[in-house]
Each structure stands twice: as structure tokens, then as C-alpha cells.
Design a protein around this nucleic acid. Structure first.
Lengths: 103, 103
DNA sequence: TTGACACGTAAGCATTTGCTTACCAATATG
DNA sequence: CATATTGGTAAGCAAATGCTTACGTGTCAA
């Protein structure tokens, strides 16, 4: 059970960029820090929060720590958005009804 | 152009609840504050941020201020999630390939 | 074994966030 | 008109956030 809320985790642009970078595969902290021109401690702290949110997993390989994407918690965001798609569809149907009524 | 990031706006649970409540239609601040047992200033400040994010619009009616949902900015969240659906599908296909290979 | 590399983490600190209390403006009601 | 209702906003303040610097641990390489 993640100890950090997913919505909180993806609120910071740096953390979204980290997740985006990990879509290609697992990467060590050093690479991520260099890519985003960010300090290593800052990157490490962001990764820690993503770990607590269950959005990434880590794997020690020698002296490197490889992070990989585990996007399951994003399903919560997706399902929350689902209700708004429904809202959208309802509005569109209402609009169409109005337009139909004018004819 | 919204001055507040959508991801930032939906990070706070209280603001997500406000958006959820507005799905049924426009509501005055008083109703929203009472429903979530929150103070009126706190509710008003959250609504201000949602307004700056372009997620709600306001309409003065007498001494009431009615807020309604304008969920267009949520499309940015939806499209960001889209890339992860693709990631999911890729992983599922790889998994199926592995399973097929075992037979 | 000695030094360099990769990383996590604690401590410090500035900024942001989110609430409360207090106040003001505008509108409805008696 | 006087009063109550509705709501925005400033000021104050505690907590959270996000960075930096400094340090410790474990691993590779000479």
C-alpha cells in the first residue's frame, strides 16, 4: 500500500519528467540527474517519493541503483478522470439535443 | 491561458472533491463549504486556485457566486496518461509473447 | 589496500501551502 | 433604513515542500 498519494506524486513537473524518462526502460540515478540537469540528491529525493507512491521500483546492480517504472497507481488517476469523460459526453449530448431542437 | 498547473490544481484532495461536487451542476460557495465541512475562506481559496487553473468558472447571481465545472484543462492530464497506457500495452504484449513462447 | 564512483540521507534553510481570524463590499430582507 | 446573508481577501502562522551542503556506506578499479 503506497504511503504517498499518486496525485501528489505527479504534481511536481520534475517527477513527471522522471517517470517519462523511465518509460524507455530502467535507468540509474546518475543518468536521470544528468539528463535533467538536476543535482543528484534532489533527484534521489524525488525518486524516493515516487517509490513511496508505488510508481517506480529500484534494483541494485553493483554500485548503481536502477529505477524502473511501475505505473499501476496511475490507474487511480485514470479512473478519476473517467467520471469527467462522462461529464463531457453528457454535455455534448445535451448540446446536440439543443441543436437538434433548433431545426 | 491558465496561470496554475492542472496537475498542481488536482493534487489537493479537497480540490478534487470540489470538482467532483460540481459535476452535478453549478453550486454556490456556501453549499460547497457546508458539504465538505470546510470553512468558507478555505473553500473560497481553493476555488480561486481552480479558477486560475481554468477548471471552474464563476457566475454572480445576486449575492451568490455560482461555480461551474470547465474541465477542459483535464485533457492535458488525460493525454499525459495516454503514453502510459501505451507503456502498459507494450508490457502486456511482451508478457503474452513470453507466455506464448513457453507453450 | 587505496582512491574513485554511485548513492542515500540527515541537517539546514528559503519558499510555498493551507488554514484561521478579521475585515470589507455587495445584495437581499425586515 | 437597518440588519442579515454571501463571499472575497488580507494578515498571520504552522506545516509541508524542495533545494543545497555535508557526510556515510557500499562497490569497482588500480
Amino acid at each position: 500500500m503506497p504511503s504517498v498519494d499518486v496525485f501528489q506524486a505527479i504534481a511536481h513537473p520534475a517527477r513527471r519528467e522522471l517517470l517519462d524518462a523511465l518509460r524507455v526502460g530502467e535507468l540509474p540515478v546518475r543518468t536521470l540527474a544528468e539528463r535533467f540537469d538536476s543535482s543528484r540528491p534532489a533527484t534521489s529525493q524525488h525518486l524516493r517519493l515516487l517509490l513511496d507512491a508505488g510508481l517506480v521500483a529500484e534494483r541494485r546492480l553493483g554500485r548503481e541503483n536502477l529505477y524502473r517504472l511501475t505505473p499501476d497507481p496511475l490507474v487511480a488517476v485514470e479512473s478519476w478522470l473517467g467520471a469527467y469523460e462522462q461529464f463531457w459526453n453528457t454535455r455534448l449530448r445535451a448540446l446536440r439535443d439543443v441543436l437538434d431542437g433548433q431545426e
